[in-house]
Protein backbone atom coordinates (compact mmCIF):
# COMPACT_ATOMS: atom_id res chain seq x y z
CA UNK A 1 0.00 0.00 0.00
CA UNK A 2 1.37 3.40 -0.93
CA UNK A 3 1.00 6.70 0.90
CA UNK A 4 -1.61 8.05 -1.56
CA UNK A 5 -3.87 5.06 -1.12
CA UNK A 6 -3.56 5.23 2.68
CA UNK A 7 -4.15 9.00 2.75
CA UNK A 8 -7.15 8.46 0.45
CA UNK A 9 -8.64 5.86 2.76
CA UNK A 10 -8.09 8.14 5.73
CA UNK A 11 -9.77 11.16 4.12
CA UNK A 12 -12.64 8.86 3.15
CA UNK A 13 -12.91 7.74 6.76
CA UNK A 14 -12.66 11.33 8.03
CA UNK A 15 -15.46 12.41 5.69
CA UNK A 16 -17.78 9.77 7.17
CA UNK A 17 -16.74 10.71 10.72
CA UNK A 18 -17.40 14.40 9.98
CA UNK A 19 -20.87 13.47 8.76
CA UNK A 20 -21.59 11.34 11.82
CA UNK A 21 -20.29 14.17 14.02
CA UNK A 22 -22.56 16.67 12.31
CA UNK A 23 -25.61 14.49 12.76
CA UNK A 24 -24.71 13.58 16.35
CA UNK A 25 -23.69 17.07 17.52
CA UNK A 26 -26.46 19.06 15.85
CA UNK A 27 -29.12 16.32 15.85
CA UNK A 28 -29.77 17.52 12.34
CA UNK A 29 -29.16 16.24 8.86
CA UNK A 30 -30.11 19.41 6.99
CA UNK A 31 -28.05 19.83 3.87
CA UNK A 32 -27.36 16.10 3.67
CA UNK A 33 -28.85 14.06 0.85
CA UNK A 34 -30.35 10.83 2.11
CA UNK A 35 -30.34 9.52 -1.42
CA UNK A 36 -26.57 9.90 -1.69
CA UNK A 37 -26.15 8.10 1.64
CA UNK A 38 -28.39 5.25 0.51
CA UNK A 39 -26.46 4.98 -2.73
CA UNK A 40 -23.20 4.74 -0.78
CA UNK A 41 -24.68 2.02 1.44
CA UNK A 42 -25.61 0.12 -1.72
CA UNK A 43 -22.12 0.73 -3.17
CA UNK A 44 -20.41 -0.76 -0.11
CA UNK A 45 -22.79 -3.70 0.20
CA UNK A 46 -22.32 -4.58 -3.48
CA UNK A 47 -18.55 -4.17 -3.51
CA UNK A 48 -17.79 -5.94 -0.26
CA UNK A 49 -19.73 -9.16 -0.89
CA UNK A 50 -16.25 -10.69 -1.00
CA UNK A 51 -15.67 -9.84 2.65
CA UNK A 52 -16.12 -13.45 3.77
CA UNK A 53 -14.65 -15.17 0.73
CA UNK A 54 -11.55 -13.13 -0.04
CA UNK A 55 -9.01 -12.16 2.61
CA UNK A 56 -6.59 -9.39 1.66
CA UNK A 57 -5.47 -7.95 4.99
CA UNK A 58 -6.77 -7.21 8.47
CA UNK A 59 -6.72 -3.53 7.48
CA UNK A 60 -8.95 -4.18 4.45
CA UNK A 61 -11.43 -6.30 6.36
CA UNK A 62 -11.75 -3.80 9.21
CA UNK A 63 -12.17 -0.87 6.81
CA UNK A 64 -14.85 -2.73 4.89
CA UNK A 65 -16.80 -3.41 8.07
CA UNK A 66 -16.36 0.22 9.19
CA UNK A 67 -17.57 1.62 5.85
CA UNK A 68 -20.64 -0.64 5.73
CA UNK A 69 -21.54 -0.09 9.39
CA UNK A 70 -21.03 3.69 9.43
CA UNK A 71 -22.99 4.28 6.23
CA UNK A 72 -25.86 2.10 7.41
CA UNK A 73 -25.80 4.01 10.71
CA UNK A 74 -26.12 7.32 8.85
CA UNK A 75 -29.02 6.02 6.77
CA UNK A 76 -30.66 4.65 9.90
CA UNK A 77 -30.32 8.02 11.66
CA UNK A 78 -31.84 9.89 8.73
CA UNK A 79 -34.74 7.49 8.38
CA UNK A 80 -35.34 6.22 11.88
CA UNK A 81 -34.15 8.79 14.42
CA UNK A 82 -37.15 10.83 15.54
CA UNK A 83 -35.34 14.18 15.90
CA UNK A 84 -32.85 13.86 13.05
CA UNK A 85 -35.51 12.77 10.59
CA UNK A 86 -37.41 16.05 11.03
CA UNK A 87 -34.47 18.11 9.73
CA UNK A 88 -34.21 16.17 6.47
CA UNK A 89 -34.60 18.46 3.43
CA UNK A 90 -36.99 16.12 1.68
CA UNK A 91 -38.33 18.69 -0.76
CA UNK A 92 -34.78 19.60 -1.89
CA UNK A 93 -33.59 16.01 -2.18
CA UNK A 94 -35.54 15.08 -5.28
CA UNK A 95 -32.84 13.69 -7.54
CA UNK A 96 -34.10 10.59 -9.34
CA UNK A 97 -31.51 8.27 -7.88
CA UNK A 98 -33.21 5.12 -9.15
CA UNK A 99 -32.01 6.12 -12.60
CA UNK A 100 -28.45 6.08 -11.36
CA UNK A 101 -28.91 2.58 -9.94
CA UNK A 102 -30.52 1.28 -13.12
CA UNK A 103 -27.93 2.88 -15.40
CA UNK A 104 -25.04 1.54 -13.30
CA UNK A 105 -26.53 -1.94 -13.34
CA UNK A 106 -27.00 -1.93 -17.11
CA UNK A 107 -23.47 -0.62 -17.62
CA UNK A 108 -22.08 -3.28 -15.27
CA UNK A 109 -23.86 -5.99 -17.26
CA UNK A 110 -22.35 -4.62 -20.48
CA UNK A 111 -18.88 -3.60 -19.30
CA UNK A 112 -17.13 -5.83 -16.76
CA UNK A 113 -13.94 -7.81 -16.44
CA UNK A 114 -15.51 -11.22 -16.09
CA UNK A 115 -19.09 -12.40 -16.36
CA UNK A 116 -19.36 -13.60 -12.78
CA UNK A 117 -21.72 -12.55 -10.01
CA UNK A 118 -19.00 -10.88 -7.95
CA UNK A 119 -17.30 -9.13 -10.87
CA UNK A 120 -20.58 -7.66 -12.09
CA UNK A 121 -21.48 -6.47 -8.60
CA UNK A 122 -17.99 -5.01 -8.32
CA UNK A 123 -18.30 -3.11 -11.61
CA UNK A 124 -21.81 -1.97 -10.58
CA UNK A 125 -20.45 -0.59 -7.31
CA UNK A 126 -17.65 1.26 -9.11
CA UNK A 127 -20.07 2.89 -11.57
CA UNK A 128 -22.58 3.73 -8.87
CA UNK A 129 -19.94 5.25 -6.60
CA UNK A 130 -18.83 7.50 -9.46
CA UNK A 131 -22.26 9.18 -9.60
CA UNK A 132 -23.54 8.67 -6.04
CA UNK A 133 -22.51 12.20 -5.00
CA UNK A 134 -24.85 13.80 -7.57
CA UNK A 135 -27.96 14.00 -5.32
CA UNK A 136 -25.78 15.61 -2.62
CA UNK A 137 -24.29 18.19 -5.00
CA UNK A 138 -27.73 19.01 -6.40
CA UNK A 139 -29.13 19.44 -2.88
CA UNK A 140 -26.30 21.82 -1.94
CA UNK A 141 -26.76 23.75 -5.14
CA UNK A 142 -30.47 24.13 -4.46
CA UNK A 143 -30.15 25.20 -0.86
CA UNK A 144 -27.32 27.59 -1.73
CA UNK A 145 -26.05 27.79 1.83
CA UNK A 146 -23.65 25.12 2.95
CA UNK A 147 -22.99 24.73 6.65
CA UNK A 148 -19.43 24.19 7.80
CA UNK A 149 -19.52 20.47 8.55
CA UNK A 150 -21.41 19.63 5.36
CA UNK A 151 -18.80 21.57 3.39
CA UNK A 152 -16.00 19.67 5.15
CA UNK A 153 -17.77 16.40 4.46
CA UNK A 154 -17.89 16.97 0.70
CA UNK A 155 -14.35 18.38 0.76
CA UNK A 156 -12.91 15.24 2.38
CA UNK A 157 -14.87 12.98 0.03
CA UNK A 158 -13.42 14.88 -2.93
CA UNK A 159 -9.93 14.72 -1.44
CA UNK A 160 -10.31 10.95 -1.14
CA UNK A 161 -11.07 10.71 -4.85
CA UNK A 162 -8.14 12.90 -5.80
CA UNK A 163 -5.73 10.86 -3.68
CA UNK A 164 -6.97 7.62 -5.22
CA UNK A 165 -6.07 8.94 -8.65
CA UNK A 166 -2.55 9.70 -7.44
CA UNK A 167 -2.49 6.17 -6.01
CA UNK A 168 -3.37 4.68 -9.41
CA UNK A 169 -0.71 6.74 -11.16
CA UNK A 170 1.81 5.55 -8.58
CA UNK A 171 0.73 1.92 -8.93
CA UNK A 172 0.76 2.14 -12.71
CA UNK A 173 4.44 3.06 -12.66
CA UNK A 174 5.54 0.83 -9.78
CA UNK A 175 3.55 -2.40 -10.24
CA UNK A 176 3.78 -4.66 -13.25
CA UNK A 177 0.44 -5.33 -14.97
CA UNK A 178 -1.39 -2.62 -13.10
CA UNK A 179 -4.03 -1.30 -15.45
CA UNK A 180 -7.65 -1.40 -14.56
CA UNK A 181 -9.38 1.04 -16.78
CA UNK A 182 -12.93 0.42 -15.48
CA UNK A 183 -12.02 1.79 -12.07
CA UNK A 184 -9.69 4.47 -13.38
CA UNK A 185 -12.13 5.95 -15.91
CA UNK A 186 -14.97 5.85 -13.35
CA UNK A 187 -12.67 7.43 -10.80
CA UNK A 188 -11.80 10.27 -13.16
CA UNK A 189 -15.48 10.92 -13.88
CA UNK A 190 -16.24 10.89 -10.17
CA UNK A 191 -13.45 13.32 -9.34
CA UNK A 192 -14.48 15.65 -12.16
CA UNK A 193 -17.93 15.96 -10.56
CA UNK A 194 -16.28 17.62 -7.55
CA UNK A 195 -14.41 20.23 -9.61
CA UNK A 196 -17.15 22.83 -9.40
CA UNK A 197 -17.62 22.34 -5.66
CA UNK A 198 -13.88 22.57 -5.06
CA UNK A 199 -13.69 25.81 -6.98
CA UNK A 200 -16.19 27.48 -4.66
CA UNK A 201 -14.74 25.77 -1.61
CA UNK A 202 -11.31 27.27 -2.24
CA UNK A 203 -12.83 30.63 -3.13
CA UNK A 204 -14.58 30.76 0.25
CA UNK A 205 -11.42 29.58 2.00
CA UNK A 206 -9.29 32.19 0.27
CA UNK A 207 -11.71 34.99 1.05
CA UNK A 208 -12.34 33.64 4.53
CA UNK A 209 -16.05 33.70 3.75
CA UNK A 210 -18.91 31.29 4.26
CA UNK A 211 -19.21 28.69 1.53
CA UNK A 212 -21.99 29.58 -0.87
CA UNK A 213 -22.84 27.92 -4.14
CA UNK A 214 -24.33 29.98 -6.94
CA UNK A 215 -27.92 29.17 -7.84
Amino acid sequence: MNIFRFAGDMTHLISILVLLLKIYATKSCSGISRKTQELYALVFLARYVDIFTEFISVYNTIMKIVFIASTLAIVWCMRGHRVVRRSYDKELDTFRHYFLIAASLVLALLVHEKFTFQEILWAFSIYLEAVAILPQLVLLQRSGNVDNLTGQYVFFLGAYRGLYILNWIYRYFTEPHFSRWIACVSGLVQTALYADFFYYYFLSWKNNAKLKLPA
Binding site: D9, D50, E54, I56, F67, E175, H177, F178, A183
Partner: peptide, 10 residues
Protein backbone atom coordinates in the same frame (compact mmCIF):
# COMPACT_ATOMS: atom_id res chain seq x y z
CA UNK B 1 -6.44 -11.12 -5.81
CA UNK B 2 -3.51 -11.43 -8.22
CA UNK B 3 -0.66 -8.93 -8.06
CA UNK B 4 -1.42 -5.69 -9.83
CA UNK B 5 -5.13 -6.11 -9.15
CA UNK B 6 -7.28 -3.17 -8.15
CA UNK B 7 -9.49 -5.49 -6.12
CA UNK B 8 -7.22 -5.05 -3.12
CA UNK B 9 -8.48 -1.48 -2.83
CA UNK B 10 -11.49 -0.34 -0.86
Amino acid sequence: PPKGSIHDEL
